[in-house]
């Protein structure tokens, strides 16, 4: 191998490393800046309300319908397996625990990332492309406080509510299939569920998960939008990255959180 080829290869490695370190540093500084501007978003409540409308209210349909169908399918599949062991009455337990602990926060988070996170990225990216963000800076309006922070806060507020609605609709769907369609006794459906689901261990941990996912998805969405290359292609790349990165981080965070939250109950 010729020496300049070696130099060229090393240079490529060096540039790639420096590039990712720079990006990481920018992401960290950006996160801190967003957190610093969060109180400003709470002061400008009307902006934040608008973002809760866009990321929360407009996601309602997909969240509610998915929750209902996930619950109904879970009930059908769960019944099929449980009936082999004569444990039909545990259907409520199975559905409630899977929804409240895992499926509610995770699936709602994935849907939220694709429905609301991508929209946030595209919007901020397009604002950057059309130089609206620079215009704001010219007018001495901080785009972090005016554009980014309300979207961040709106996402954090919406996500736990959406996850709770998802779980509720899922349990309702399971009730429809299990009790109304299959004919499991309603008393044992609810009774077994209530004796197995613990408020602190299951429901509070589920809510904590959904808050963490809300923070992760919102932060990734605003970062990718703010960091998008100001071209049409750049915005589309950023939107894709938001969906991929938030979905992967939801799954990774879910594993880590589950290890810490439910580790004590395995043994």
């Amino acid at each position: 191998m010729r020496p300049d080829a070696v130099t060229w290869t090393l240079r490529r490695v060096g540039r790639a490393t420096l590039g990712s370190v720079e990006r990481l540093g920018f992401a960290a500084r950006f996160s801190v800046a967003v957190l610093v501007h969060t109180p400003a978003a709470l002061r400008r409540l009307s902006l934040t309300l608008r973002e809760i409308y866009f990321s929360g209210v407009l996601s309602l349909v997909i969240i509610l319908v998915s929750g209902l169908f996930v619950g109904m399918v879970l009930a059908l599949q769960g019944y099929d397996v449980l009936t082999r062991y004569g444990a039909n009455e545990s259907l409520g337990v199975l559905v409630a625990l899977s929804l409240v602990r895992e499926l509610g926060p995770v699936v709602a988070g994935l849907l939220f990332a694709s429905r609301a996170g991508s929209a946030i990225t595209a919007e901020i990216g397009l604002m950057k492309t059309t130089e609206q963000l620079s215009a704001m800076e010219m007018m001495a309006v901080d785009p972090l406080a005016r554009v980014v922070a309300p979207r961040f806060v709106g996402g954090i507020v919406s996500m736990p509510l959406l996850a709770a609605l998802f779980s509720m609709l899922g349990i309702f769907g399971a009730y429809l299939v299990g009790v109304k369609l299959i004919g499991i006794d309603a008393g044992s459906f609810w009774g077994n569920m209530q004796s197995a689901v613990d408020f602190r261990y299951d429901i509070v941990n589920g809510i904590i998960k959904s808050v963490v996912f809300g923070v992760a998805v919102s932060l990734i969405a605003v970062f990718e939008g703010y960091n998008a290359r100001p071209t049409a292609e750049g915005v589309s790349t950023a939107t894709t990255r938001t969906v991929v990165a938030s979905s992967l981080s939801i799954l990774a965070l879910d594993f880590v959180l589950t290890v810490f939250m439910f580790r004590g109950m395995v043994g």
């Binding site: 409630a96 779980s167 004796s195 689901v197 429901i203």
Partner: peptide, 11 residues
């Protein structure tokens, strides 16, 4: 929904 989960499901 959170109240439903806490009261009806979590009892």
């Amino acid at each position: 929904a959170i109240l439903f989960l806490s009261l009806k499901v979590g009892n």
